[in-house]
Design a protein around this nucleic acid. Structure first.
Lengths: 204, 204
DNA sequence: AGAAACATACCAACCAGTTGGTATGTAGTC
DNA sequence: GACTACATACCAACTGGTTGGTATGTTTCT
């Protein structure tokens, strides 16, 4: 009974509810009442933990970053000794997540920033930080792969890391538009092929 | 006085207003009153032309497709005799549009489908049609470029056309998150490089 | 006891959509 | 060509329900 296995308080229940409800309905269309109902808490609890709906939005993005960050940190692709294989492993891992309902595999941050980039600067900043820091985990491996091959191309590791995020976010939009993951998966395949070409061509 | 130069009725004023307001605030956060104010018409006029807010959403997507369709149809890249150059010209043209404020160069369809894919099936369908038909205009050139080189790769022209749209939509999300077009432009550069590698490699 | 964590009751502003009406056609009929 | 019948385009005021947020409790933990 040392470390409580899980004593979900209202705050984390609300954040978990936000992750799924917001991804389904979007941020603006999600009401505070709805969030409370989904979390099984009252409105009093909501405004005890968050001073406004926007504050919950910021916290939800941070919560998302932590939750998904753990998933990626524990993913098996890190074990590869070759940094390029780690990058390709990351992309393959992202592709393997494209199953089940569209709501479940799409990204909270991409959804929220679309709606809030102009009207809620704090949410925009949180989303930027989330995307950029996640891309940052890729950048080191990309850089290592470049160095290993003695490459000095006209693109940067940063831009390639961000490009992977752009492809994934765009793939989610395709999935939402088409109501399925097929086109999204093929887009991720193109990303894999691009990275292989990029590094394969330099080998010669 | 044969063809009226421009007699903007309430309907088209509302559709034009929707294109800019929705891209700024998102679909859900945009109110009917706001739209009416931006268009300079009354609420009565709104519900005379559209039976609901959702119906306006569908019409706005279709209006967007027509408006942007004209822009691309008249763009100069179509003149190139080489189909591959037309594809690359399209991507370069898309990159050249990444100027000014984020609101002005981002895509109405990508914004709307994120919010409405689950709650408004009619809007989702309209967005799918818009993206797919726009991708379709690229597909023919991609196919022609493949044939010209006698390529039979493990990817299809359709998937590459949709991939270009995914990259562009993802680039818009980057732009919104970062508050500027720089990262988006670099992502489009990566797309150009990918297409060049894809077709350049087959040349040999 | 005192503070943090929650619950209940409530409110003012706002929202999509409705109502009843006016102004301007336009097609048909005698 | 004028009168009726009907349709389209638009408007201002209103409505019932919803929204984010607050005020004021009660319970729980230390």
């Amino acid at each position: 009974m040392s470390t409580h296995p899980a004593k979900p308080d209202a705050r984390s229940k609300l954040l978990d509810a936000a992750m799924s409800v917001v991804r389904t309905k979007g941020y603006s269309a999600t009401t505070v009442d709805e969030l409370c109902a989904a979390a099984g808490v009252t409105k009093g609890a909501f405004f005890h933990h968050f001073k406004s709906k926007e504050a919950l939005g910021v916290a939800a993005v941070e919560h998302w970053s932590e939750t998904t960050g753990t998933v990626f940190a524990n993913a098996p692709y890190h074990d590869h000794p070759d940094p390029l294989q780690r990058v390709l492993g990351y992309v393959a891992f992202r592709k393997s997540l494209l199953t089940g309902s569209v709501t479940d595999f799409t990204c909270l941050v991409g959804t929220m920033v679309q709606e809030a980039y102009d009207s809620a600067p704090a949410i925009r900043a949180a989303c930027d930080k989330s995307i950029s820091s996640h891309a940052g985990t890729l950048e080191a491996d990309i850089e290592a792969a470049m160095e290993e091959r003695g490459m000095s191309p006209d693109w940067t590791a940063t831009s390639l890391a961000l490009h992977t995020q752009a492809v994934l976010q765009g793939a989610f939009i395709l999935a939402k538009a088409k109501g399925g993951a097929e086109a999204a998966a093929e887009s991720v395949d193109h990303l894999t092929r691009y990275i292989e070409l990029l590094f394969g061509a330099a080998r010669h």
